[in-house]
Structures are given as structure tokens and as C-alpha cells.
Amino acid sequence: MSGGPAQPAVLAERVGQSYGRRRALDGIGFEIAAGEIYGFLGPNGGGKTTLFRLLATLLPLAEGRIEVFGHDLAREALAVRRRLGVVFQAPSLDANLTVRENLRYQGNLYGLSGAGLAGRIDAALDRLGLTDRSGDRAGELSGGLKRRVEIAKALLHGPDLLLLDEPSTGLDPGVRRELWDLLEELARESGTTVLLTTHFMEEGDRCHRVALLDQGRIVAEGGPATLKERIGGDVVVLASAQPPLLTEGLHERLGIEATVGDDGLVRFEHERAHEFVGRLVAALPGLIDSVTVSRPTLEDVFLALTGRGLGEVA
């Protein structure tokens, strides 16, 4: 056991999973503290969903060890599930039942019933702004409302660890903001540990810590700001009609090693890039159509480490 005196919410060691010859997870390990918002950021196919399914106890753990609040995931699945709230990417609502009925059945599965359950349902409906929708059939709700019911469902029994698989997918920006306000409130006020998977770097930015997951491995882990500091300075992105000529020119005339992405854009990192732009354009006349200088993003970190963007399939 590493870490401080407090028990970690999740402790994973050498977790692996293969589908035939494909390694979906290649012996990863991580430790998540209670009350932390922790994100697994990576492209689709990077192993996020497999990890989520293992943590949600839907996929039997074949390799390695996972402990959730000290409970061994493989041997004490029921004890783990009692502490978990799970928000799936695919809907898990019963379309034939009303919102309130969905929540009631969910409560029953977690051993809740009677007045205690009714009170929790009212509180969950209120918290997610669903009170006036409680009598609607779940199948008739819009995508955003359905996701809210999913979250109400997952929060009903007061889980200590909330697992979310790509929670923002399919949500409009307003709903996405509300979701994040709620997640931060849960972590701050109830001490709920939040663990999510995402391929949006904006979502990674709001996590306390992120693990960048690529081809079944964690390629970097840490606070978003710390990870970005790994990139020395600013990110410069150049658009050009002739990317190969431009990279050659950058190398010969300015000693800069740039890369061409799949999008055809030329990228490099440079300290205090805004002071450097004038020299850059003057040194390579006619080769540069546009220059963008920005602070590095988590996507830049991912790109620098793996050579691939987050939107691409690993």
C-alpha cells in the first residue's frame, strides 16, 4: 500500500484485459483519493470503456487487483457495488416506466423502500430539476433530460464513488456545465469521489487529476496544470499550403523541430512565442497562411506524448 494514512477510494495495480490478441488494458495502476474528481482522458479505443466496465463490476477482473474503499473488487463485488453509483454512456432507463418509477425500482435494487426511499427520490428529483417531470414516461424524455434521470438514479442511494462513462457525450453545453457544477458540488460537500472517462480535454481540465490513457497504458498522470507545464512554453500552430516545405524551412533557418499532424497543420512548442511570431513569418516568406499561438491544452500534452489527437481512434 502506498499513499497517506487515509484509505484510497480506488487502488488499482497491474490491471490488464485482453480481447483475443488485442490488449485493451496493459497492466495499468493508479490510486484515487476519497473526494477527488479523477478523469481518464483518451481517445476511443484507448481502454477507457474496458476500465469503466471493470470498475462497474460488469466485466470480471481477469488480471491484476482493484480495491474500492478497501474491498477487493474480484472477491467482494456486492460490497463494492453498494458503494458505487454508475452512470452509463448508453441509457439504462426503463422506457415503459415513469421517471419516479424508474427511481423507485432503482432504490429497491439498493435495498431502499418506503418513506425513506420516497424522500430520497424527491431530493434527487429536486437536485436535478426533474420534479415536474416525475410522472413522464422515461421513453418520452429528451436526451438531456434522460441523462439527468440517469444521474439521479446513480445518486439515489448516496454512493461514495460515482462512476461516469463519457458523461458529456450528447449533451449541449448548458447541460454539460450544470453537470460539472453538480459533480464539483458532490465532491466538495458530500466528499463523493468522482471517477469519469472522457475524450474531451475541456472535461479533463475540470478534474483534480487526470490519467492520459492510450492503447491500454497510462502515458501520463497528474493535475491538468502540472501536465501542461511539461510542454515548454506555448503551442504554435501554422497553416500552410506546403507543410513539408515549411517544416524543412523551420529546421534549416530557425533550428525548430516541428511536426505535421493528420489535420495537415504544422505544430511546435516555443517559449514566449508571441514575441517570436514576427521573426517567424519574416524568415519563411509565403509559406505561412496563418499562425495560432496558444497556451498548451491537455490535447497538446496527449499529442506530444503519443503523436495522436484525442479525437482519433487509437
Binding site: 456486492l78 458505487l84 452509463f88 439504462s92 432507463l93 422506457a95 432503482q106 435494487l109 439498493y110
Partner: peptide, 14 residues
């Protein structure tokens, strides 16, 4: 297919 089952399977029900 509707996804309801995954919620049941993740619940603390044997």
C-alpha cells in the same frame, strides 16, 4: 438492448 439490464447488473443484487 435498452440498457436496463446493465443497471441491474451493477446493483448490489446477487
Amino acid at each position: 438492448h435498452a440498457g436496463f439490464l446493465q443497471g441491474v447488473l451493477a446493483a448490489p443484487v446477487p
